[in-house]
């Protein structure tokens, strides 16, 4: 009870405004000929599709590494896993599980290296994370051309060299999570139960991780690194661990995203993905150094709700396509607001 009160107190006006904005969009939707059931299903689908990216922000925020602008590294690991799984010819649930399993070692390796870098640059993590992410995406662009994958679904038939920019997952694991126990609400609206369950599982695992001895130490490192060190906790190790977990979640996140989306996207696709996750968790009420599961859920829902509802409702209401611009201003405004807020940690 008190934590809910606390949460409301910390909620802050930007989130309240966004909440009511979204609410009014839902209320207004039917008047502009937008079907509520479809919208709701769409929001739920995107919620499950993007939630894990947002969840991936939590460990690094908790350990004091700031927002993971370099989430693309995890996404790359996920893409490698997906490609290996396709190459191995795994299909269905096995293909999805295989992709996660094969992505894991890459995620750990990338996360470890990336964590080492971030430990060297304490205080400047976010800018550097961003450029490390950008640089690795561009590096992988080269690799996608060079690497010797040869499954016919993934390479250009003729005229091109290397992997396709988008690879269809139709015959592999498209919607394997979404369709699991899916509920058809109305003829055109389906609730992707499996996807939501998987997201809930991830949230539960993260929630309980933060309750373990190591999770407690990680939070303490983010809250006050000097305290943690004086209590015998290695801050560098905790930070690296948080980066590895975040990177791994990034890998899982892209796999969930792809199975729902039906396509695997290579090349520059991961470049901008971290920003959406950053925006979502900040909208959810997290600060640069404190984030909770509640922030993840609320943030993902509000952000994805905004993305889904503004185009359909605003555009039909105003008879323009102004929604894109509104989204651009609102979500980037939130990020700026969060960055200019005084740090909550008092010293």
């Amino acid at each position: 009870m008190s934590s809910i009160k606390q949460y409301l107190a910390d909620f802050g006006w930007p989130r309240i405004i966004i909440f009511f904005f979204l609410l009014s969009l839902f209320v207004a939707a039917p008047f502009f000929g937008v079907r509520l059931d479809n919208s709701l299903a769409d929001v739920l689908n995107r919620f499950g599709q993007n939630g894990i990216f947002v969840l991936a922000m939590v460990p690094m925020i908790q350990s004091g590494c700031g927002l993971n602008f370099g989430l693309s590294l995890g996404i790359i690991a996920g893409l490698i896993g997906a490609l290996l799984s396709i190459q191995a010819g795994l299909v269905g649930a096995l293909g999805f599980a295989g992709a996660i399993a094969m992505a894991a070692p890459f995620a750990v390796l990338f996360g470890w290296a990336y964590g080492r870098i971030l430990n060297k640059v304490k205080g400047e993590e976010m800018t550097i994370a961003m450029y490390v992410g950008f640089a690795s995406v561009m590096f992988m662009c080269i690799m996608w051309i060079i690497l010797p994958f040869d499954s016919p679904t993934m390479i250009w038939g003729y005229g091109g060299k290397g992997l396709r920019t988008t690879i269809s997952l139709e015959s592999f694991y498209k919607r394997v999570l979404n369709d699991f126990l899916a509920i058809r609400m109305t003829p055109s609206a389906i609730i992707p139960t499996g996807e939501l369950l998987f997201f809930s599982l991830c949230i539960y695992l993260m929630w309980s991780f933060l309750r373990t001895k190591t999770g407690t130490a990680m939070t303490a490192v983010g809250s006050n690194p000097d305290f943690a060190r004086a209590s015998g906790v290695s801050t560098d190790r905790m930070r690296t661990l948080s980066v590895i977990i975040s990177t791994f979640l990034g890998a899982v996140g892209i796999l969930v995203y792809q199975q729902s989306y039906g396509f695997l996207q290579l090349y520059t696709a991961p470049l901008q993905m971290p920003f959406a996750a950053v925006a979502a968790i900040l909208i959810g009420g997290a600060s640069v150094n404190k984030g909770s599961m509640l922030n993840v859920v609320v943030g993902t829902f509000l952000f994805q709700g905004l993305l889904t509802m503004t185009p359909s409702v605003i555009n039909s209401a105003l008879q323009t396509d102004m929604s894109e611009v509104i989204r651009l201003i609102v979500s980037n405004g939130i990020i700026i607001y969060a960055l200019t807020r005084k740090l909550k940690v008092t010293k």
């Binding site: 800018t127 561009m138 090349y267």
Partner: peptide, 19 residues
């Protein structure tokens, strides 16, 4: 791609070195 990589990489590298 290489020139973009090199651009981003140069920024990342010099920020890391400096920090």
């Amino acid at each position: 791609y290489f020139r973009q990589f090199i651009g981003y990489g140069a920024i990342a590298l010099s920020l890391v070195l400096y920090a």
